Amino acid sequence: MIEVRPRTADDLPVLCEVLAAQAVASGYPIRWPWSGPTEEFIVRDGEEQAWTAFLDDEPDRPVGHISVVRVGR
């Protein structure tokens, strides 16, 4: 089962690892390695809310994240 809670700054190091680990296989992001700090790819300007996902069997290790960013109007 997947648990979701608000993302915290403490989640970012592992979320950066997760992004790097899946990038080659998934092709996301298209440009990899990312040209700047990976944290800046995960935490976007204009982000309104963000959450971190965990699996029940590893409740202290993030496996992904979700964010809501307002795009231009």
Rank of each mutant, 00 (worst) to 15 (best):
1 M>C: 12
4 V>L: 11
4 V>N: 05
5 R>I: 06
7 R>E: 03
7 R>Y: 02
8 T>G: 02
9 A>H: 10
9 A>G: 08
10 D>Y: 00
14 V>M: 11
18 V>G: 00
19 L>D: 00
21 A>F: 03
21 A>D: 07
24 V>E: 11
24 V>R: 04
24 V>S: 05
25 A>E: 15
29 P>V: 09
29 P>L: 08
30 I>S: 10
31 R>F: 14
31 R>K: 15
32 W>I: 12
32 W>D: 07
34 W>K: 03
34 W>R: 01
35 S>E: 14
37 P>W: 04
39 E>I: 12
39 E>C: 10
42 I>R: 03
43 V>D: 04
44 R>W: 04
47 E>R: 15
47 E>C: 15
48 E>D: 06
49 Q>E: 13
52 T>M: 01
53 A>R: 02
54 F>P: 01
55 L>M: 11
57 D>E: 13
57 D>K: 09
58 E>M: 10
58 E>K: 10
60 D>W: 01
60 D>F: 01
62 P>V: 10
62 P>F: 03
62 P>W: 00
65 H>C: 12
66 I>Y: 05
66 I>L: 14
67 S>E: 07
67 S>V: 09
68 V>W: 09
69 V>Y: 00
69 V>K: 07
69 V>P: 02
70 R>F: 06
70 R>L: 09
71 V>E: 09
71 V>Q: 11
72 G>M: 12
72 G>T: 15
73 R>V: 09
73 R>E: 06
73 R>F: 04
